[in-house]
Amino acid sequence: MKKLSISFSAIILILIFESFVYHIILKQSNLRSGIYNISDEQVGIKFELNSSGKFYFITPQPIVTTAHIKSIEVGMSPRVNYHTYPFISLVFDPAGATLIENAFAKYKYGRQTGLIIKNKLVSVIESSSTSSDGKIIRDGKLTIMSSTFTIEQLQEWKKEIESEKL
């Protein structure tokens, strides 16, 4: 009986050590700029969204990276309810647009992805915030618009993405 409890303890220690090493490796990972899936479970790399105190777990395999971005537009939206909002539009090549569409195809509402720039989670994209038909991308373009960002922040994002593409 004693052998069984030692074996069981050894297995537990191995599992704890493996989990610890896995999380250490993930915490030290640098992700390329791109769009990543957000895990529904606490699996992946833990990122804080823009120093907001909200944390998300990002799966380390990107949906798309900056390699798929053809161009980037930054500007102000037309008036919506008497307000204009800063926006950034990422225009993807056909392969990148297809990858994003496929990632969201199964989910009309509730799917979350994260925009990572320079190893920071800067925006969470939800399928419920897309058009009425659930499409997240139109004509190869993904637009993120929010009153939370300034036009200067979005211009900085654009520079960072473009510098990583080089």
Results as ranks from 00 to 15, higher is better:
Leu4Gln: 09
Leu4Phe: 12
Ser5Tyr: 14
Ile6Gln: 06
Phe8Ala: 15
Phe8Leu: 15
Ile11Gln: 13
Ile16Pro: 03
Glu18Ser: 06
Ser19Cys: 11
Ser19Asp: 14
Val21Asp: 02
Val21Gly: 04
Tyr22Glu: 14
His23Gln: 14
Ile25Asn: 11
Ile25Leu: 12
Ile25Lys: 12
Ile25Gln: 07
Lys27Val: 02
Leu31Gly: 03
Leu31Ala: 08
Arg32Pro: 03
Gly34Lys: 05
Ile35Gly: 00
Tyr36Gln: 07
Ser39Thr: 07
Gln42Lys: 13
Gln42Ile: 02
Val43Gln: 14
Lys46Met: 13
Glu48Thr: 05
Leu49Phe: 03
Ser51Gly: 03
Ser51Val: 01
Phe57Trp: 15
Thr59Arg: 14
Thr59Met: 15
Gln61Asn: 13
Gln61Ile: 07
Pro62Asp: 09
Pro62Tyr: 09
Thr65Trp: 04
Ala67Ile: 14
Lys70Asp: 15
Gly75Met: 10
Met76Leu: 15
Pro78Trp: 00
Arg79Glu: 12
Arg79Thr: 06
Asn81Arg: 14
Asn81Thr: 06
Tyr82Arg: 11
His83Tyr: 14
His83Leu: 13
Thr84Gly: 06
Thr84Ser: 10
Tyr85Ala: 01
Val91Arg: 07
Phe92Ile: 10
Phe92Leu: 15
Pro94Lys: 05
Ala95Leu: 13
Gly96Glu: 12
Ala97Met: 08
Thr98Glu: 09
Thr98Ala: 04
Glu101Thr: 06
Glu101Asn: 04
Ala103Arg: 06
Ala103Ser: 13
Ala105Cys: 03
Tyr107Asp: 10
Tyr109Leu: 12
Tyr109Trp: 11
Tyr109Asp: 08
Gly110Ala: 09
Arg111Pro: 02
Gln112Asp: 09
Thr113Val: 15
Thr113Cys: 07
Gly114Pro: 07
Gly114Cys: 11
Ile116Asp: 00
Ile117Thr: 12
Lys118His: 14
Asn119Ser: 06
Asn119Met: 11
Val122Thr: 10
Val122Tyr: 00
Ser123Tyr: 14
Ser132Val: 01
Ser132Cys: 01
Gly134Ala: 00
Lys135Tyr: 01
Lys135Leu: 00
Lys135His: 01
Arg138Glu: 14
Gly140Val: 12
Gly140Leu: 07
Lys141Trp: 08
Thr143Glu: 02
Ile144Arg: 02
Ile144His: 02
Met145Arg: 15
Met145His: 06
Thr148His: 05
Thr148Ala: 04
Phe149Leu: 00
Phe149Arg: 01
Phe149Gln: 00
Phe149His: 00
Thr150Ala: 00
Leu154Asn: 02
Leu154Arg: 01
Gln155Lys: 12
Glu156Asp: 13
Glu156Ile: 11
Trp157Val: 10
Lys158Trp: 09
Lys159Asn: 13
Lys159Val: 13
Ile161Val: 14
Ile161Trp: 00
Glu164Phe: 06
Lys165Asp: 10
Leu166Pro: 02
